[in-house]
């Protein structure tokens, strides 16, 4: 019969490389029509990182996300980036992009200050304007300031910056240090049905609660978590690279290396724990790899809760779970019925 169980797993995960340098650099230029261009070496692979970077630059400059053109992944035209790895793009590249936008904005403030008859530190950028703080009617359009900066002041509003997470190397004696700039945290709860006659496990539902600092684009965060959970379900129940005696993979295609289909995916509930990291761009950290870290552990804990067997190697295939259930039954003293 099918037995229902629930399991939980928690994790922390670091953002960026372990101690070693992993800088990102960015260039932001503000154009005379009030739009901006971001040059970044990072690569969009569908996770939405260029959208997030455009949002960060737009927020810093007080313009719309659509007004930020992103030029990416071409080292002839853009600064080198360490890469779309280590769950680092929002945090590391995002910080570089924000700092570059801030520098370009500072030029706008210097130029706008005499135009508005105030000091540069009394200005803010919002709603496509450079505005005197507290006096929103005293403003100049950002495009007009950019034009004035270039044509009159001879100072085009261009900023460039780099960011490398602040770390402290680990002491070889004590193991103490600060190997990463920041960390993210998550808890996932899995609900499974285990058939105790076949060992088959069906994941019914996963609730995933993730801290990624400020979720700059919550829909993209959800997409990352849902995708990570599908990989975690595959890791827990299906995916295994098999080798022959010569070390050659014997299941190198999708016929026999099984990944989750729409029919294997549980119902997923994503809970974003809104948080603020003062070292991140607008408080953001990261969300890529961490999303699948707790999934398999939550699922095998749920299997234990359902049928009382501990699965200690992955994937928890039906054969493996059934063998464990059998072994547990065999170990129990036989009940003699009348």
């Amino acid at each position: 019969m099918k037995r229902r169980g629930r399991g939980m797993a928690c994790m922390w995960y670091p953002i960026g490389f372990t101690v070693s340098a992993n800088p990102s650099a960015a260039v932001v230029k503000i154009d005379e029509d009030g739009t901006a261009t971001l040059l970044t070496g990072t690569v969009e692979t569908g996770q939405g990182s260029l959208t997030v970077l455009a949002q960060i630059v737009a927020q810093e400059l007080g313009i719309a996300t659509d007004d930020v053109q992103v030029v990416s992944a071409d080292t002839d035209a853009t600064p080198m980036d360490t890469g779309a790895i280590a769950s680092r793009t929002t945090y590391v590249t995002g910080n570089a992009a924000r700092l570059a936008a801030e520098k370009a904005k500072e030029i706008l403030f210097e130029v706008a200050a005499p135009m508005l008859g105030v000091k540069a530190d009394q200005l803010e950028a919002k709603d496509h304007k450079i505005v005197v703080k507290g006096y929103p009617q005293r403003n100049v359009h950002i495009g007009d300031v950019a034009s004035h900066a270039r044509v009159v002041m001879g100072q085009p509003p261009i900023g460039s910056a780099s960011f490398n997470p602040a770390t402290v190397p680990l002491d070889p004696e004590t193991g103490q240090g600060k190997p990463f700039g920041t960390y993210v945290y998550a808890t996932q709860i899995a609900e499974v049905d285990v058939d105790d006659e076949t060992g088959e496990v069906e994941v019914i539902r996963i609730v995933a609660s993730h801290d990624c600092g400020t979720p700059i684009n919550p829909m993209l965060v959800e997409g990352q978590v849902e995708g990570g959970i599908s990989m975690g379900v595959g890791f827990a129940l299906e995916e295994e690279i098999l080798f022959d005696s010569q070390g050659r993979q014997i299941n190198p295609n999708l016929t026999n290396y099984i990944i989750p289909t729409s029919l294997d995916m549980p119902e997923v509930e994503v809970d974003i724990v809104d948080n603020y990291d003062p070292t991140g761009p607008f408080g953001a950290k990261g969300v890529g790899e961490p999303t699948l870290v707790p999934t398999a552990a939550a699922i095998v804990n749920a299997i234990y809760n359902a049928v009382g067997v501990r699965i200690t190697s992955l994937p928890a295939t039906a054969e493996k779970v059934f063998a464990a259930i059998q072994a547990k039954r065999d170990a129990q003293p036989k009940q003699i019925t009348a």
């Binding site: 569908g46 996770q47 959800e222 997409g223 849902e226 995708g227 990570g228 959970i229 599908s230 990989m231 999708l254 990944i259 989750p260 289909t261 729409s262 029919l263 995916m265 997923v268």
Partner: peptide, 13 residues
């Protein structure tokens, strides 16, 4: 969608 594999999204959206 059972015959369409997706590695990124988990099919949810």
């Amino acid at each position: 969608l059972g015959g369409n594999l997706c590695r990124c999204t988990g099919y949810v959206k």
